[in-house]
Design a protein around this nucleic acid. Structure first.
Lengths: 334, 334
DNA sequence: TTGTAAGCGTTATCAC
DNA sequence: GTGATAACGCTTACAA
């Protein structure tokens, strides 16, 4: 593997001059520069980033911390990695397993000091929240620039999906389609539920609708989510008049509601319009295909990558918050 | 940021001794070691990987190459990362974007030379196949131990799901449940289709069944897979007697078939039993829940991690192939 | 058991 | 314009 030294020897100039030629910005005779560049090309010179990082003090990798494995996260990874790669940063992943994760992270950091970190972890309960906040504190203490995605620790830079606006928009969309009695079915205390309710209430107010909210109790896991969809449908069935449209907390709930409708002879969207949240792969293939709210994962990843690069470069401790808009994916359930 | 030098100064011993204490494996007085370790902890010492890599030339990380983003892969990552972490290896991801991936990889390798690599990329067509094989050749040329997961380049070490056995087992299961006319619906030329057919044919022979195979044309993407499920159902509908059970190439196809049945008044499993392949999250919640074949992602990840560690350690160029058994997940569709 | 010192490839400060 | 040379933090042969 050719180094500056090799090029220097080959061309007969000093290492410093080779360096100047390669960097391009410093004063150097055109002729020398040409010769050096030719030699560099011939020797297949590739700069050694480890050496560069050593000299300049900075690490050259970004740790992505993640606990809940979803395709969504991976796609954010992908978009982020693309941005980071351009800045010659590597993306390294750290998977949160259990309550030892803080120790694990410290151990991980003892293997290499990253230039920055992204917390993509999410939480379902207080314990997890505390745990993840602990991870952030470690980065903070170590002065490692850290960006949270869909996380809201005070003082941390973050990229957040604007759930409130997303729901406001979806309710508005339903209202414009002519639906009048529009309900929201969420999950008490789940991450992002409050923001959704906020958007719902705002839309209800703006369009002078009747507020109709059902909250299922918090429970973790896919099965629980499916169960909550059924719970919601059973709740609304108790009343004389069913709502004309329901915005669900999540696709899982919505899909489950769809099944309930199928089993109980409720026609979607004629009798009841349904909107999910997340745009999971299934939703395109349900019966009928589900209208849903799509988190723009690529955009989130890209923005996060860029923001993190800025944080790494600037290294002042200001924290930024960036909101990202969701997209409404219209399908046959509305 | 504390360095060996800082610890040395604080404790009054030489850098070399600090290094020995931290490494642990060399001869050193217990007392000295204790003092040094305490100081290291107090100073929050984190080794500088750049410096280490610079000196020793060798990397401390494993690159995972991936192109098609699926939750499955991520879960393999997770299990693998756990194994690697124990060996003080970092997991770094490299996402394959396009036909420039070979150049990109070379560039990536100029940033850090990894200790090993895992190719988790999969392919749908010849071009992709060639591209990914190109990536492997780069690792091979650079003498970087490389493990393929569900990939079969000659001379490369690999961990492979035993699809043939999986299908043999599922057909046998159907036969033992009393089904007689058991069909296989696959996709011509898709990765793993031949192995599935092999297992199917073997089972047909063993149990003296009637061979009944339908192959949809190859097309890429989820929607295409769903479409092929419908194609398969339409194919089988043409005959006087529908098969009693169908093993599908993939969950997507099976789910689509399930929908077809619902729309056409075919009762599952009474009129027709259906088995998928992959155990995707949806399958637990379809109507009825789908019996499917589960790739033991955790086991695959773990085995891969261990095998890769062995490859890195031994550094001889023998290549290993390890087959992993799939699990049958029995649900209500059979 | 511990210490000295060289060197990995780069960058940057000086002096020429 | 160009070239010595020191330094980044770590590893490792060689001394002591």
């Amino acid at each position: 593997m050719a180094s500056l030294k090799d090029i220097a020897e080959k061309t007969g100039v000093s290492i410093r001059t080779v360096n100047r030629a390669l960097k391009g910005d410093e004063k150097i005779k055109e002729a020398t520069k040409k010769i050096v560049l030719a030699a560099a090309k011939e020797l297949n010179y590739i700069p050694n980033l480890a050496a560069r990082a050593l000299k300049s003090g900075g690490g050259y990798e970004v740790i992505a911390v993640i606990n809940n494995l979803h395709e969504m996260h991976l796609r954010k990874f992908a978009a982020m990695e693309k941005v980071l790669r351009e800045k010659e940063l590597l993306l390294s992943i750290f998977i949160v397993e259990d309550e030892n994760c803080c120790e694990d992270l410290l151990k991980r950091l003892s293997l290499s000091r990253p230039a920055g970190a992204v917390l993509m972890a999410d939480y379902d309960n207080q314990e997890q929240y505390d745990l993840i906040k602990g991870l952030w504190k470690i980065f903070d203490q170590q002065d490692i620039p850290c960006l949270g995605i869909d996380l809201d620790f005070e003082g941390m830079s973050q990229v957040i999906l604007d759930r409130s606006k997303a729901i406001y928009d979806s309710i508005t969309y339903l209202q414009q389609k002519g639906y009048k009695d529009i309900a929201y079915a969420g999950i008490e205390g789940a991450f992002g539920n409050d923001e959704r309710i906020e958007g719902y209430k705002k839309a209800v107010k703006t369009h002078s609708l009747k507020e109709n909210i059902f909250l299922a109790p918090l429970a973790v896991g896919d099965e629980a989510r499916v169960e909550s969809g059924k719970l919601a449908m059973e709740h609304f069935a108790k009343f004389a008049k069913r709502p004309q449209a329901i915005q669900f907390f999540t696709d899982m709930m919505a899909v489950s509601a769809l099944q309930y409708c199928q089993q109980n002879g409720i026609k979607v969207p004629e009798d009841l319009a349904i909107i999910g949240f997340d745009n999971q792969p299934i939703t395109a293939f349900t019966q009928p295909p589900l209208t849903t709210i799509s988190q723009p994962v690529e955009r989130v990843g890209e923005i996060s990558g860029k923001l993190l690069c800025d944080l790494i470069k600037s290294s002042n401790s200001v924290s930024y918050t960036k909101f990202v808009d969701a997209d409404l994916v219209e399908r046959a359930s509305t």
